[in-house]
Simulated scan of single mutants.
Amino acid sequence: MIRKSQSITNKLWSCSAVLGLLLLWQGICSAGIIEAYLLPSPASVGRALITEFPALMEHGKITLKEAFAGLFLGVVLGFFIAVIMDHFHGLYRAIYPVIILTQTIPTVALAPLLVLWFGYEMTPKIILIVLTTFFPVAIGLLSGFQSVDPDEVTLLRSMGAGNVSIFRYIKLPGAMGQFFSSLRISASYAVVGAVISEWLGGFGGLGVYMTRVKKAFAFDKMFAVIILISVISLLLMKGVDYLSKKCMPWEEI
């Protein structure tokens, strides 16, 4: 009951903060402090969201398809890299600096090269999402693998367990918390990465839609897309939270 009461209180505070920001936004627009063509009011953004909803859904399907494909491949790649670095210390010292180097390259600078090399289809967008999402998963899992209790590992080895058994019964369960925390970050990165890649070329997607409405100076529609992207990211993060509760029921005890 205490936990449920705290959850309700936290949600009330969050909803109050969002409502307060909306009221402040509406007040600024109604008072004419900022011109309407620069900052559309929440009411006009809501109307744009309703009138453009069918088009947004069509473009959103493309963006979600890219985001899910890139996120899945990014998680697989991150898991593989984390396992390799955990088992082979020499490869860890060789691979880790390269992984860090990949994250120092701005995605906005890399996206045009991927479009140039792979065209305007889905392939360059998925590659960019993979490069964006694999890093949190790899680092989170590696941290989880390395934080296991060494006494537990020694105990299993004394009972004749091999590396596979130690990984299955100690390292993997012990790293699940860090994995889902990293997956939550990667899920939000996947949507943002898909939109950024669509800015630079494509035939559909929320990024392409944003580029079109920006050129038409339809900023109410631009804000509508931003809100939709935020909602999608939040839903994906909530989905990861739900999955983590199903995979780690002992955390709820």
Results as ranks from 00 to 15, higher is better:
1 M>L: 14
5 S>N: 13
5 S>T: 15
6 Q>V: 13
7 S>E: 13
17 A>F: 08
18 V>F: 06
21 L>H: 01
22 L>N: 08
23 L>G: 14
27 G>E: 08
28 I>H: 00
29 C>Y: 07
31 A>F: 09
32 G>D: 11
33 I>K: 08
36 A>K: 14
39 L>C: 10
41 S>Y: 02
44 S>I: 04
46 G>N: 03
47 R>M: 02
48 A>G: 02
49 L>E: 06
51 T>P: 01
53 F>K: 04
55 A>R: 07
59 H>P: 04
61 K>Y: 15
62 I>Q: 13
64 L>N: 11
65 K>F: 15
67 A>Y: 00
76 V>G: 08
79 F>E: 06
79 F>M: 10
83 V>C: 04
83 V>Y: 09
84 I>H: 02
86 D>K: 04
91 L>S: 13
96 Y>E: 15
97 P>L: 01
99 I>A: 14
102 T>D: 08
102 T>E: 06
107 T>C: 09
113 L>E: 05
114 L>W: 01
116 L>R: 02
119 G>D: 07
121 E>R: 10
122 M>T: 15
123 T>W: 03
124 P>T: 05
126 I>E: 07
127 I>T: 12
136 P>L: 11
139 I>E: 09
140 G>T: 14
140 G>Y: 09
142 L>S: 03
143 S>T: 13
147 S>F: 07
147 S>H: 13
150 P>L: 10
152 E>A: 12
156 L>E: 09
156 L>F: 12
157 R>N: 14
160 G>K: 02
160 G>A: 12
161 A>F: 04
164 V>D: 00
167 F>D: 04
168 R>I: 10
174 G>K: 02
175 A>G: 05
177 G>H: 14
178 Q>V: 00
185 I>G: 12
192 V>S: 11
201 G>M: 06
201 G>H: 07
204 G>S: 15
206 L>T: 08
209 Y>S: 09
214 K>G: 01
221 K>M: 10
223 F>T: 05
226 I>K: 01
226 I>F: 07
228 L>C: 07
229 I>V: 15
233 S>F: 10
236 L>A: 03
241 D>C: 06
244 S>W: 03
249 P>D: 13
